[in-house]
Design a protein around this nucleic acid. Structure first.
Lengths: 247, 247
DNA sequence: CGTATCCTTGATTCGCTTCAACATTAGTGG
DNA sequence: CCACTAATGTTGAAGCGAATCAAGGATACG
């Protein structure tokens, strides 16, 4: 009976504690003292679970909180009237979602779970309040926003001046690096998104993505089996990315 | 005599006062009380002048301040070893430069004046300090950062899913809208950047930009004379941007 | 006033998209 | 648990849009 009661709570909210979280070192709380962490625990008190394909927020939703991915993964995208979408990012554990909403107090993109996932809800007004008191938190939050800007710039670079294979190689290397930071294998992983979503993110059609995967496999750079990726020659991938830079 | 002395000061720094600035309503101080503004005046005490083609900062420079464009305009770009550049943005008066540097405490792009320009120097550590005390300032700063993220997303959209003419039309409309906000004509303006820089920003070659301008002119949408642009049919431009969306 | 920079325009090439058919996997209900 | 169907992924052939190559012209700047 306790378990059923708990399940109900789980579906909507569950006590969180940054101080207990193993993602601490990658997430918003980097560099906080134990005392500061305790204050953050107060603030980030609710988690939210989402099933695959469920939306965390949609364009136009009022902005109230930002979110830290605790488990699973998401995509953010801008959807146009005709239904075509531009994927603007893929977020994995410890990454922050919702920063787009601050400027207009309304979300400007959709955030959708790519698998069953869980986020920590960080009420924004409270975050601003606490970060006025806790300097390291303030600074860390600014860094998080700035990192998003830097990331966006490198996507612009990718979209603006790389060819298809370069884009895909850069994408794989980026994933690999992020998996590594989370303690997973940097040579073997599972894609959570479809070819179409990858294509949208990289400014390519899904057929082009598929073909590029096949060519990488032919050349022995990776082995692909649907969504399972095994990187066999990471230097080879790096060489592809920097080839347009070499001479 | 006083004037010569003053000129020397001008070359490096000049007393600024947000409270006296006519860009107040577009810039960081939006929504500040007179009292808060006075505090901001203390902080933003130095201006910096730059000649055309001079760099405000370069990739790798230590990050110490952000900048508000007071006069003139800038481009930011990521430059690769081979010298090829990806322009990540064009900034005009009241827009903020340097946010990319917060994350790694090092600038991650180059910022170059497109014409003789002037910026207000906002020492970042002091800005964080003051924004811990002045809530509206804190909030406004967060909005500025968020706006940059939203802008970047729309550039991704542009680069990822629009064709050449759509990109250029969107670019012209964006400029028009920004000029309007600054009290200038929204149908007639001077481009501060070259075709190559526009191309880099839009992920196109300069020849493609030039051809698109010519085609717009042929169709009576604009009149172009080198860098001077006259928009004749703003709805026509809008139609081009949204054509890929209309069915 | 001369020279470097920037812009325009044409012809050709190339890479990605489009269209199409089929294969595979995942998800659903009987 | 299997059968069926929808979603996803692969591969080929043809078409198209932008890049590339090339030459000439306009403009701005020292």
């Amino acid at each position: 009976m306790a378990s059923t009661a708990r399940l109900t709570v789980l579906s909507e909210g569950l006590k969180t504690a940054c101080s207990q979280c193993n993602l601490q070192e990658l997430c918003l709380p980097i560099g906080l003292s134990n005392n500061d962490l305790a204050q953050l625990d107060e603030l980030v008190s609710v988690r939210k679970r989402l099933k695959r394909h469920q939306h965390l927020y949609r364009t136009g939703d009022p902005f109230e909180a930002i979110y830290a991915v605790r488990a699973g993964s998401f995509k953010t995208s801008i959807v146009q009237e005709d239904g075509r979408e531009q994927v603007t990012g893929f977020q994995m554990t410890s990454e922050i979602l919702g920063l787009d909403g601050i400027s207009a107090e309304t979300h400007t993109c959709d955030a959708e779970a790519l698998e069953d996932s869980e986020v920590c809800v960080i009420p924004f007004a409270k975050l601003e309040e606490l970060s006025r008191q806790v300097e390291p938190l303030q600074h860390q939050f600014h860094k998080v926003m700035s990192r998003e800007i830097v990331r966006d710039h490198s996507v612009m670079m990718l979209l603006g001046s790389m060819r298809a294979e370069e884009r895909l190689a850069a994408f794989l290397l980026n994933l690999s690096q992020r998996f590594t930071a989370r303690g997973f294998s940097h040579t073997e992983f599972h894609l959570r998104m479809t070819r179409e979503e990858i294509g949208s993110y990289l400014g390519l059609k899904l057929e082009t993505v598929s073909r590029a995967f096949s060519r990488f496999q032919e050349r022995g750079l990776i082995s692909v089996q649907q969504k399972h990726i095994h990187i066999l020659d990471i230097d080879g991938l790096h060489a592809i990315v920097s080839q347009h830079t070499a001479l």
